[in-house]
Every structure is written in structure tokens, then in C-alpha cells.
């Protein structure tokens, strides 16, 4: 038996909206560690790993670890029937062939019940090694989204250059080229706007903007984003979900020939 009640149902709505364009289906694993998902996009270029810990829910009950094979498109369709301020309860029997979703409004006078048919998904699980990154950039998630949107007009690739001066995003294509440099700025009014860099050594890597733009759809979940980079390893883009979870994206770099 799995049962998890999420008082901020909007978190689940935003979470599914943020990943549904990257992955079409996946096994959500429920266990004593919480509700998690690891899934690669169909071209094996990007991977999403998300976790909502048990303390994201009240109550959270999972008697035995089990996968819930879910079509993200179908789950998204059902979650669109929930209002942003609804409480969402997820429930599944063991073994699970259906996921029940109950939406309760804050006034406690409307209850909607939906059932999602689950799928058998034969998914590959990748071991992600612990990595000490050469450069870590903490910045505003909406600024990151804006940069991806702007540079996507010029090219399908972006170079990210991190030095002690700051971080520079640059793109070049047929129409011309552009670059956006952010300096470290911890003295700003809003904590969300600060750009903070932890640097072991300078890095310069090239990535597909299409994927970065898809990751940036997670912006409504968190005002901050962290970019972790080392030469010749996948980029890690992390959004924290309050203190109760995260959405992490890994993106294989483009390799210069």
C-alpha cells in the first residue's frame, strides 16, 4: 500500500509540467525514501532525476518499495484537473496497476477523484557517480530561463565559460553571435537574483540549448538554479523543491571535433 498526501498540490502539478516534454513515461519509485523518478530522454542525451522525500507529504506511507509506471502525458492531463491550491493525495495498492488521485479544495467542500491506469515500463537505471565539480554556479532560475530563450534565437548550441570573474553564456550562428556575462553579485536586494560561483578551475563547455530550455521549464518550482560543470562530464542542473526534494537534470556535453 502506498499513500501520500501533499498539502501543496501545486508542487506536483509544476513538477510534472516541468518534465513532461523531456520524458514521455517513467517508473516513479515509491519507497521509504520517498517518491523518486529517474528517466532518460529518448535520444539518451539528457536524464532527469527527481525526489520528493517523505517529509514533503503528510502523511506518507509506503509498506514496500514498488514502481509506478506512469505516462507523463496522462498524469499531466489528470493533474490539470486539480486547482493550484488543492491538496493532492496519491494512493496505490500493492501490486499497483492503478494510481488513485484525490484533489481536495482548501474549503474542504469539494473532492475530486481520478484514477490513472499504470503501465509496465522496462526502464534502464543509470548509476550516477558522486562528482566534485570544477565549477558550480548558483543563479536566478528566471535569469537562466531568459538566457536560454535569448540565445536559442542565434544557435542550437551554447558555450558556458566559468571563471573567477563570472559566468559567460555565448552562442554563434548564421545570423551572428551573442553573449551574456553575469558577474558574481551577492549584494543584491533579493536573494533569488544573486549569482554565486564556486570555482576549482575554469571550465568552458558546450551544450544543446534545446535541452537547457526544457530544463528551464522547472523555473516555476524554484527561484534558484545550480549549474555544476567539469570538463568532459555531463552538466548537472539542479532545482531544489523547498527543503523536501529536488529535480536534477544531467546533460551530455557537445564534443568539439
Amino acid at each position: 500500500m502506498f499513500e501520500a498526501r501533499l498539502s501543496q498540490g501545486a508542487v506536483l502539478k509544476k513538477l510534472i509540467e516541468s518534465i513532461r516534454d523531456l520524458v514521455s513515461e517513467g517508473n516513479f519509485d515509491c519507497s521509504e525514501n520517498g517518491l523518486s523518478l529517474q528517466a532518460m530522454d529518448s535520444s539518451h542525451v539528457a536524464l532527469v532525476a527527481m525526489l520528493l522525500r517523505p517529509d514533503a507529504f503528510d502523511p506518507y506511507r509506503c509498506d514496500r518499495s514498488m514502481p509506478l509506471g506512469i505516462s507523463l502525458k496522462s498524469l499531466s492531463s489528470i493533474l490539470r484537473c486539480a486547482s493550484n491550491d488543492d491538496v493532492i493525495t496519491l494512493r496505490a495498492e500493492d501490486p499497483a496497476d492503478q494510481l488513485s488521485l484525490v484533489f481536495e479544495n482548501p474549503q474542504n467542500d469539494k473532492v475530486s477523484e481520478y484514477v490513472l491506469n499504470l503501465m509496465d515500463i522496462d526502464s534502464e537505471h543509470l548509476g550516477i557517480p558522486e562528482t566534485v565539480y570544477d565549477a558550480v554556479v548558483h543563479m536566478s532560475s528566471s535569469e537562466f530561463q531568459r538566457i536560454c530563450r535569448d540565445l536559442q534565437q542565434l544557435s542550437d548550441s551554447v558555450s558556458i565559460d566559468v571563471s573567477k570573474e563570472g559566468v559567460r553564456f555565448s552562442a554563434a550562428g548564421e545570423v551572428g553571435s551573442g553573449s551574456i556575462a553575469l558577474r558574481q553579485n551577492t549584494n543584491v536586494d533579493s536573494g533569488d537574483e544573486a549569482t554565486v560561483i564556486e570555482l576549482q578551475q575554469q571550465v568552458n563547455l558546450t551544450f544543446s540549448i534545446k535541452y537547457l530550455s526544457m530544463f528551464a521549464k522547472t523555473t516555476p518550482l524554484c527561484g534558484r538554479v545550480t549549474l555544476c560543470m567539469s570538463s568532459d562530464v555531463p552538466l548537472l542542473v539542479e532545482y531544489k523543491i523547498d527543503e523536501v526534494g529536488y529535480v536534477r537534470y544531467y546533460l551530455a556535453p557537445k564534443i568539439e571535433e
Partner: peptide, 14 residues
């Protein structure tokens, strides 16, 4: 030109 890498080259299947 740059070639898009794949995650399989970096992360091993478990």
C-alpha cells in the same frame, strides 16, 4: 562543429 555526446558514455547501467 560539435557532436552531441550521449549519457550512456558517462553513466553505467545498474
Amino acid at each position: 562543429t560539435a557532436t552531441q555526446g550521449r549519457l550512456d558514455s558517462f553513466f553505467k547501467s545498474t
